[in-house]
Design a protein around this nucleic acid. Structure first.
Lengths: 156, 156
DNA sequence: CCCAATTATATCGTGCGCGATTTAATCGTG
DNA sequence: CACGATTAAATCGCGCACGATATAATTGGG
């Protein structure tokens, strides 16, 4: 007879490296580190760059729309947008028709960064060490994971 | 003849949703949000939980070893570990043989959390909406991405 | 028309994550 | 043994991310 009785379900120690969440966590940190010097060249941070991308797709979005696009709320976006305004890449202006809303507009300087960003980010696919097809598949899977987690948190 | 001459490489507007980095970024945020109430039940934050997992695998690790395991440095870990010490789940003590080093030891309270954590995290695979096989494949791909980015940043 | 409910942003406090620097202990070479 | 170089951790400042709350504008019944 073994000293320790076998439990109904083997508890099987969970290890850090078995967790998808840790892989995502550490990959996100790795992306941040990789992007930092590139973004510094543009005078931006990585989250600020994501905001700019959203604005290059559609200028003049409100804080709420940007938040929906990026998965962030005003408590994160407001100070971030203020820093971007100070940096001179966007302008924030109250909507005349509805003074609660704040529209975020690119400045010429903010628009100009789009071309520069394209060149600076060209090195990224190479750095991932993955093929275009692999990247598309990976992205799709990560998006599915993200969306499932988000809706599991709300209404299941 | 087309109005706009075709450039050598088509600049093809990059959209937010095409970026793997944004998928990883937003998935990491989603994980954080999903884990927050679970971790609160344990009196922990998500990064603190990751530290505990590393210690459950091997107790008494130094700050540097923990950092290597988690991909963090002392500037992040030191204050985090101090909060965990205040919370009573670990103890930090200077190594007698080498006074530069600080060993991190689980307290009984910190050890006890392992069993509770297992039960609380049982809901996670379900929430991802992915099969076990899909999760393994996804984790492997994300780890590869992370490791490639990290070594591209250093010596290529 | 008024006022409670709703909506949009902003504010505040806390905990990361990290670049830059500091402090302190150990090592290595003479 | 001395002393500069190296190593380990800690400190500092900044920018997210977010829960909780506040402020201000609009909406909708009665």
């Amino acid at each position: 007879m073994p000293e320790t009785p076998a439990p109904a379900t083997v508890p099987e120690k969970i290890r850090l490296n078995d967790l998808v969440c840790f892989a995502v966590y550490s990959a996100n940190n790795a992306f941040n580190r990789f992007y930092k010097p590139i973004m510094a060249e543009l005078g931006l941070t990585y989250p600020q760059f994501l905001v700019l991308m959203a604005l290059w797709e559609e200028d003049g979005q409100g804080v709420g729309q940007l938040g929906e696009r990026l998965g962030l709320e005003s408590n994160t976006l407001t100070p971030l947008l203020k820093r971007m305004e100070t940096a001179g890449v966007i302008e924030r202006r109250r909507d005349r028709a509805d003074e609660r809303r704040v529209a975020v507009q690119l400045t010429p300087s903010g628009r100009d960064l789009e071309a520069r960003a394209g060149a600076l980010l060209a090195c990224v696919p190479q750095a991932t060490g993955m093929t275009t097809d692999e990247l598309v598949e990976l992205r799709t899977a990560v998006e599915r994971l993200r969306d499932n987690l988000a809706c599991a948190r709300d209404g299941d």
